[in-house]
Computed example of a mutant assay.
Amino acid sequence: MLSRKGLVPEDYLLTRLAEDVLAPRFKPVQRKARFVAKNGSCNVAHTNIREQGRFLQDVFTTLVDLKWLHTLVIFTMSFLCSWFLFGMVWWLVAFAHGDLDRRRDDFVPCVTDIHSFSSAFLFSIEVQVTIGFGARMVTEECLSAIVVLILQNIVGLVINAIMLGCIFMKTAQANRRAETLIFSKHAVISPRNGKLCFMVRVGDLRKSMIISATVRMQVVKKTTTDEGEVVPLDQIDLQLDNPVGTNGIFLVSPLVICHVIDRTSPLYELSEQDLQSDSIEVIVVLEGVVETTGITTQARTSYLSEEVLWGQRFVPTVSEEDGIYAVDYSKFGKTVKVATPSCSAKRLEECMLLPILLEKLVHFTLACSATSKKKSISPQCKLYK
């Protein structure tokens, strides 16, 4: 891993390389299975799929989704099988025309210098790979040989187009760009602008930008509807605090993505103690268009309850040095403790509203006592009563 070599700090995780580290000898017992792994892969197994033929209807996508070993095996076998098949066809053409046992000097074969199946196989390779023949070449004696020549060239072009296109797509997949999109190892909950907020940090290690970058957050947890239906993976969106009004970001330097825990948030009634006991998972999705290729890419990660730090915030990573802004990635995942109430956002809001309500109550009481001396009841007193 890059972090073990000193190239990448251990305070943040690469989206695709996060799980390549050596596993500890004794793994901690997780209270909840991840829906999305730290490296972005989805922990979902598709079973009992009966209509397997649907995958063959889209052969190209199926080949792209295969592992590299399987793709290389199919790539090699497709050429070997086509060479062997057309080698057999060329041998049959030569055998039917009598090219293998010709005796006259003025005999014109269909294909010159074919004496056995080995020479027919070599000629098949020459036809499919290049048209620049050596001693073996097709003559105008046989129409069938010309037809086979045309068919093999067409088949060879189709195989080249499919297999080379498949390998190109596998090497230029959009998830490769996501290797340099990073997330903080932990999420934090702390006050910001007087409100309790859930925050994570995202960054991009490359200088080439992600155009139209957007960030989305979702809470995945087990819920039960009013009718008693159990939803094992209920996905609830989290509204992000963005002055623009959208989830779009300008990802030039590391950014702290903030979700204000308000009345509409599923974390509204979550306290520090509840965070340790509840099994929730927050999924963060970063997607955008790669500037150099124009391909849409997506990076994902998730945070379980034990990966959320209560009462901490991220330290700054950007500083101005010699007229430029320098980003110190060694501070990317570092946090500091801040004064944070351990109660939920709902309880905190009630505590903040209590002095206001008491002040209004005193104001109404004084207003009513003043009007009672005048033997007249004001509209405010009527409303208060």
Rank of each mutant, 00 (worst) to 15 (best):
Q235W: 04
Q276V: 02
R16H: 08
T139D: 02
S3H: 06
D234K: 05
Y384Q: 09
V327W: 06
F314M: 15
L267Y: 08
V108L: 05
L157R: 03
R300D: 02
D99M: 00
N242D: 11
K170T: 12
F121M: 15
K360S: 03
L92E: 07
E272H: 02
I280D: 09
L14H: 03
S277Y: 01
G6Q: 13
N48P: 00
Y303L: 04
I324S: 12
D58Y: 10
S344E: 02
A23L: 11
S271P: 00
F84T: 14
Q152P: 02
T365F: 09
L22G: 02
H186Q: 09
L151T: 11
T76H: 10
S277M: 01
T224L: 12
L63G: 01
T47C: 03
L85E: 02
G156L: 06
W90P: 00
S212E: 11
P28S: 02
P191N: 06
L92Q: 06
A187Y: 07
V252D: 06
Q218T: 12
W91S: 10
V252P: 00
D65V: 00
L181T: 14
C381Y: 01
S124Q: 08
R136N: 04
D105Q: 00
S378N: 09
C343K: 13
L85K: 05
C381L: 07
M199A: 08
R25D: 05
A135P: 10
E227I: 03
V64Y: 05
T130M: 10
V289I: 15
E307Y: 10
R50N: 03
W91N: 14
K346N: 04
I236P: 01
R177G: 14
I324H: 09
V138C: 04
T301C: 08
A145Y: 00
I182G: 01
R136V: 01
E350C: 08
L56N: 07
S190Q: 05
L122I: 11
D101A: 02
P379V: 00
T139N: 12
S212F: 10
N48C: 11
A345D: 03
D274K: 12
K5V: 06
V64L: 11
R263N: 01
V147A: 08
K5F: 04
P109G: 00
H259V: 10
A120Q: 14
T301S: 10
L354R: 15
H259G: 06
C197P: 03
A345E: 06
I283M: 05
G156T: 06
M199N: 12
N242G: 04
